[in-house]
Write a protein that binds this DNA or RNA. Structure first.
Lengths: 189, 189
DNA sequence: CTCCAATCTTGTCACTGACAAGATTTGCTC
DNA sequence: GAGCAAATCTTGTCAGTGACAAGATTGGAG
């Protein structure tokens, strides 16, 4: 163990981020305080400010990291629009804390360059998937938006408990596949 | 004006609710304080507590009223699934403050009886619309969920500014109609 | 070894949500 | 129309919070 009582934490930035993610999963993106994160990380109440500035800074870092993971997940499924849709829902369910912050831009600084870059990466995959879905039909934009909407909507409804299924022991991914298939037209059946 | 300086406000409950709706539209469901609402309504900082108990009480009242308006809007379009989808998006855009609270159950008391009743009313219309959409195909549940998801997803993406279109002067309803048509199969063309 | 910059602590201030106790008003009862 | 109980609103208070300022500690560059 060794460095149990050193003045410097060593990796406070990561510790605060992890504490934030845990807290968000427990009680939402607004259900905790900066001081609580500091306590969880075992530092003084003002220590996190040095790394993040303020509360919005913490959420900006969470969103940025989230968009990077998200972009990676989508890129891994790129080429297969249906697979990208499944990856979209899967990310939301598996990384709930990230997802809940990412799509609530009033919580963070949306003009953060690192964040914007990752967000655009994800956007590019979505746009490409949309083009592939509606090949040669002309209704590109509407089809892309419909596909994006159904994935996003299903994920949101699931996360906020609006679907009766999310209370039982239903298999999210299987249900998501069935729903996505309605819009993505069969996909990888 | 007469009753300018009376001890009793007269209609504080409504005044606080209206102040809350205005504040939510300006800065989200968490970007204000109870004391600020009291100031806007011109009463002391503890006055709202008598009507709502605590902050969650205010949000519970907002959500309950929202679900009632929502159920009414959906019922008015009942019978025509495509029309219900349009009404869904229209409600979200026209009553942004309500919508943003309604689908964030961690903010309020979801077991409030009045609220639950209105929510179930809305749910019934959605279920009926779903059944009508997928007449005799067997894939009832998936079709219903897909339709609900696309309406909810489009509304959410629009509201949080994720769609490039929501920054310009695009016509939301027209865009929504095109998107919904992809899933609702033509509808009232 | 020295000194600087990064990191963390302690101290403080205005603001907040929640609660308690008291003041004022309304409306019901007789 | 007088009295009284309940509803409504105010004032006062307390711990917790976010943000900032100033000081302590540490590691590392030279």
């Amino acid at each position: 163990m060794g460095k149990t009582e050193s003045y410097h934490h060593g990796n406070l930035r990561r510790a605060v981020l992890d504490a934030a993610l845990a807290a968000i999963e427990e009680s939402g993106p607004s259900g905790w305080s900066l001081r609580e994160l500091a306590r969880r990380a075992g530092v003084s109440h003002a220590a996190p400010a040095h790394h993040f500035g303020d509360k919005a800074g913490v959420l900006t870092a969470v969103a940025a990291e989230g968009f990077e993971l998200f972009a990676g997940a989508l890129e891994r499924a790129a080429g297969d629009p249906y697979g990208a849709g499944v990856a979209y829902v899967r990310f939301a369910v598996d990384h709930r804390a990230y997802f809940e912050v990412m799509f609530r831009p009033e919580l963070y600084r949306a003009d953060d360059p690192e964040l914007a870059a990752a967000r655009d990466r994800a956007g590019a995959v979505l746009a490409a998937s949309g083009r592939k879905l509606s090949r040669g039909e002309g209704a590109d934009r509407a089809t892309t938006l419909a596909a994006w909407s159904v994935a996003h909507g299903f994920a949101s409804l699931w996360l906020n408990g609006a679907l009766p299924e999310s209370r039982g022991e239903a298999d999210v991914e299987e249900l998501a596949r069935e729903v996505l298939r309605v819009v993505f037209g069969g996909g990888a059946e």
